[in-house]
Design a protein around this nucleic acid. Sequence first.
DNA 1: CAATGCATGTAATAGGTTACATGATTTC
DNA 2: GAAATCATGTAACCTATTACATGCATTG
Lengths: 184, 184
Amino acid sequence: MIKLTPTARVILGFLQLGARTGYDIKQQADVSTRFFWGASYGQIYPELRRLTDAGLVRPTSQPRGGLARTEYTITARGRKALHDWLRKPPGPLLFEYRDEALLRLFFGDLLSPEEVAVNLRQAREEFEHDAARFRELQAQGLPSGYPAAALRYGIELMEWIAAWYRDAERRLAAGDLAEDQASS
Amino acid sequence: MIKLTPTARVILGFLQLGARTGYDIKQQADVSTRFFWGASYGQIYPELRRLTDAGLVRPTSQPRGGLARTEYTITARGRKALHDWLRKPPGPLLFEYRDEALLRLFFGDLLSPEEVAVNLRQAREEFEHDAARFRELQAQGLPSGYPAAALRYGIELMEWIAAWYRDAERRLAAGDLAEDQASS
DNA sequence: CAATGCATGTAATAGGTTACATGATTTC
DNA sequence: GAAATCATGTAACCTATTACATGCATTG
């Protein structure tokens, strides 16, 4: 079974969903998978070349007037590799979570409770802001089906996190955050 | 204001909380910040050298018998840099989220509903498993205070995600996942 | 005709993991 | 005396972002 690099997965997926150029893939990813799976030009173009060499995509020159343009289509091999990964990815599912706000909370003992409170509020506001941005995307009504479900996940996740911080602020003020006992 | 690299933040934080050696930092991070802020030897040791050169930490040779050992203490400059970052990080708070399960859901149109259902179940089970692992850590009663709050965050996040996938399974079976309308 | 959008691409840099190598000490 | 733990470190590799460079086409 062919192993796809992280970026190859998005590329093949978007190609099969109708994307044509590298530019196109980037635009679509930016308004959909971005928050849980990004892709930059610095990854996309070199990867498209590797996928071409591996026979998973096929490029065709499709200039628009004098504007050089390369359209890619997914090959049978590419479709198979994509489908294989969609059903049984090699290795455990990749999940990465990195959160500076949480790290600052973790080191809360090095700050005064007031300073921690400021940090919690700031984190909450950022996540609220993110949730609002996602809600706008949703209101524009663009996605439907599975992409809509993923967007919904993003909104609800951001709102859950914001709510968690809101609750942490409350607990801090009530004096039972830093003294938390492991609840049984 | 001194800019700390991502790894420098964890290192300085753990040093101020009492860690002594590079090995020590790694052990402590592995059972606490790991899920939202990891650190590997390949990062820690070179970074300790850079921090030494920058005057943020001070190494002292403290062999245990014939075992070479270097204990690090944070300097006044180091404490200031850490405290500055804890209160006002340069730039927006770093937040990274990467989720292969969600990407597979996003491309659900390329699979049959049955295959999507299998993926959802698999994802849910993985997150349930993670939650259980965190719960064990918590049951061992090791952390208290802010570290305990961060662990609690981890448990509740994993459980929230698992619940989201459980609900997605239900909606898929009911036929209103892939046909989702943007709810107003 | 200026600004924006379409389109491709590279170089520098950053940040990170994994695997390996080495060797002492402690515990069973 | 074998296995696990303490301890340090590096080399190879992977993945990714940012900034830059280039130039055509479209829209106001």
